[in-house]
Computed example of a mutant assay.
Amino acid sequence: MSSIALDDAAIVADGLRKTYTGPPGEIPAVQGVDLQVERGEFFGLLGPNGAGKSTTIGMLTTLVRPTAGRARVCGIDVASDPVGVKRRIGMVAQRDTLDVELTVEENLEFRGRYFGMGRRAARHRAGQLLEFFSLGERRRARPFELSGGQSKRVVIGRALMHRPDVLFLDEPTAALDPQTRINLWDLLRGLQAEGQTILLTTHHMEEAESLCDRVAVIDHGTLLACDTVKSLQASAGAESVVTVTYEGGPLAVEELAGRPGVARVESAAGQVRVFAHEPEGVLGRLVALAHSAGATVTDITHLRPSLETVFLALTGREYRE
């Protein structure tokens, strides 16, 4: 990669590798990852358990030293200048790391002071973030008095105290209820709208699909794909599912199985599902078959490929510990 690309992008990884050595021998955790995240981008890093996501994030945030390759955050090399990188990033881990002896406001203020802010500036910045995250009324609460969603908002607010160029979010909505998760999504969209660069790891496919400009899928330490969700859906061969529910019949759907672009056809009493890479014309043909059989169509659905179908196509369906 050119030096211009390295300096202009928010995050660049070039041949990034990490190998751990233990009693079993060498264990490759990340194997030659190339990655580039643009400034202001909302980027998702997806993968099964043990895929290498955490190790990759650890190297980008200077917590893990690369075995080989190169990575820069905001043009700063993570290996040669880790302190410089830490000044430019905010990190939200899966675990709640708030200081239980401090109030919500103090948790934010102390983080600002840690990054060199004066007392007045830190208090002003904390007040801004508390209002942004709708936590003004909880400023004097202790962490153990907060709900899960409130606690997560405080953690994110604390990571933003020093106005980092890049915000790393590791499974930020894990264990949150659906309503709280969606509310947090809105807050994260607001942050990006203000220019914040965000790198997200998540197990929620709908989360990545809803929030991210681009996503990368990693498994067994290798980057399998990196693109927009729509482009990945097109390139990974994810299937659309056309479902017709009817009364009467049965329908003569055998001809559909040989139709170009159709992967398989499932037929049961009163319902036909067609899995197709190229669904154009399938729905019309199903309706025509129902009409020929004297059946009445009662419901029609067309589910387009989702990020989850792409993810499973790339990583397989086996269980991961």
Rank of each mutant, 00 (worst) to 15 (best):
Q150H: 13
L314T: 07
R120D: 14
G112P: 02
T296R: 15
Q196I: 05
L176P: 07
F42P: 01
E137H: 14
R264E: 06
V244T: 13
Q94H: 07
L160P: 03
A263E: 12
T309P: 00
T97M: 12
D213N: 05
T67P: 01
T97E: 14
G136I: 05
V83K: 02
G258L: 11
V154Y: 13
V154P: 07
A126G: 02
D170C: 10
E321R: 14
T56V: 02
H162C: 10
I76K: 06
A79S: 07
G40D: 05
L98A: 11
V274N: 02
P172K: 11
L289W: 15
I89H: 08
V12L: 11
V244L: 15
T222V: 13
T201H: 05
A9D: 08
V215P: 06
P172G: 05
Y319V: 13
L46C: 01
R304G: 10
L167I: 08
V85P: 01
R95A: 15
R72T: 06
G118Q: 11
I57L: 11
G15Q: 08
R158C: 08
D213S: 04
R273Q: 11
G22F: 08
A252V: 06
F43D: 05
V154N: 11
R95E: 15
T173L: 09
G136K: 14
A238P: 01
F110M: 13
R163G: 00
T19L: 01
T243D: 00
P143K: 11
D299C: 11
R320W: 14
A276E: 07
V215C: 04
A236N: 02
M59Q: 02
D77Y: 01
E280M: 05
A141Y: 14
N107S: 10
L16Y: 08
L35Q: 07
M59L: 02
I76T: 11
Y319F: 14
K53M: 02
P82V: 06
S240G: 08
G270P: 05
E41Q: 15
M117T: 03
F115Q: 05
G148F: 13
T180I: 12
G148T: 08
G157T: 12
G148L: 08
L224M: 06
D299K: 14
D81P: 02
L169I: 06
M91G: 02
V253K: 05
D227N: 03
G249R: 06
L169C: 10
H302G: 10
R142I: 01
T97P: 00
V155I: 15
T62C: 05
L187S: 03
A93T: 10
T201K: 00
R264H: 12
P178N: 11
G237Q: 03
M1A: 07
T228K: 03
R88T: 01
R113E: 13
F275P: 01
A174T: 14
H204Y: 15
I27Y: 12
R123G: 12
R120H: 14
Q271P: 00
P82T: 07
G58V: 02
E254D: 15
Q36A: 09
R87Q: 13
K86R: 15
A295L: 12
L6P: 00
A257S: 12
S80C: 01
F168E: 04
R95F: 10
I4F: 10
E266C: 01
